[in-house]
């Protein structure tokens, strides 16, 4: 019990710490407002050009699409730069000073990452939500947000696992910014950050939906606009599979990295 409570405390202190500069926190979150406005302009034109009688493209209305993008952006903008932080810890040697306390390094990093995420994501959801509400009205299924919550949390675990692996690769390659850039672009395209995966050609959809990027963004956002039991089960089962696979891979990378630290540290 005590060992869980220490990670809870680490999460809490990061949460409080993220409030140290409230102005910066709010200011950064306001960015979602122009994003959503631009998405609205873009998709409004697209939907009217498509001219479908039921106002839908592949099962999504303009309103669904906007609410989908709001949640996708919230998940993405809320997460802290885990890979960059961890690679800096490795490069400047401060990883050594995180390692001298009786806790698990990865759980420590995860607790701090979640602590940094919560307020950012909440503010993004509030500002993004208000903007979309003003542009297209309320979501068709407001309760979808609650149903999508476990998947949102799962998405952050996935983000963490992938980014922590990228961060830890700094043990070997020293600079990871190229990898974070590639990851980000892959997440944009295969995660459905700009275009919901439903709008892709079928063959590409089939591939994209199986990749971890879709579990990290598309899955929870789609669940929010279509909160059916069937979708919930399929999103969650795929996500859990990826979480198991990637946290396992992360544990291996970490063990390898720790041995490498004997070479790079000092």
């Amino acid at each position: 019990m005590k060992s869980i409570s220490k990670y809870w405390s680490i999460f809490q202190i990061t949460l409080i710490n993220s409030l140290a500069y409230p102005g910066e926190l709010v200011g950064r979150s306001l960015m979602i407002i122009p994003f959503m406005w631009i998405f609205y302009q873009l998709w409004k034109v697209t939907f009217s050009a498509a001219g479908a009688a039921d106002g839908m493209i592949n099962g999504l209305t303009l309103r669904d699409t906007l609410w989908y993008l709001m949640l996708a952006e919230t998940i993405e903008l809320g997460r802290p730069p885990i890979a960059r932080t961890m690679s800096e810890n490795v490069k400047d040697g401060s990883i050594a000073y995180i390692l001298n306390k009786p806790y698990d390094f990865l759980l420590y990093q995860f607790s701090t990452a979640m602590g940094e995420t919560i307020f950012r994501a909440m503010l993004n959801a509030v500002f993004g939500g208000l903007t979309v509400w003003w542009l297209v009205g309320t979501p068709n299924h407001p309760e979808g947000f609650l149903i999508a919550l476990p998947a949102i949390f799962g998405a952050w675990i996935l983000h963490f696992s992938i980014n922590a692996m990228i961060g830890l690769s700094a043990f070997v390659v020293e600079d990871v910014s190229a990898f974070t850039w590639i990851y980000q672009k892959l997440a944009f395209i295969f995660g459905g950050m700009l275009i919901p995966l439903d709008f892709y050609p079928q063959w590409l959809q089939n591939i994209a939906k199986l990749l971890p990027f879709s579990s990290a963004i598309y899955g929870p956002a789609r669940l929010f606009v279509t909160p059916t039991l069937e979708l919930f089960i399929s999103v969650m089962s795929l996500q859990i599979t990826w979480i198991i696979a990637l946290t396992f891979a992360l544990a291996i990378v970490y063990r390898r990295g720790l041995a490498q630290l004997t070479v790079n540290g000092g």
């Binding site: 005590k2 409570s5 680490i10 202190i13 710490n17 140290a20 401060s94």
Partner: peptide, 28 residues
Amino acid sequence: GTVFGQRPQLWYHLPAMDTFILFGKIYE
């Protein structure tokens, strides 16, 4: 206990008391 003079272990933006309480939890 370890102190590295060149690297702070206290949380920089928070009062030291918060770190003390956190350490209490970390050391169980």
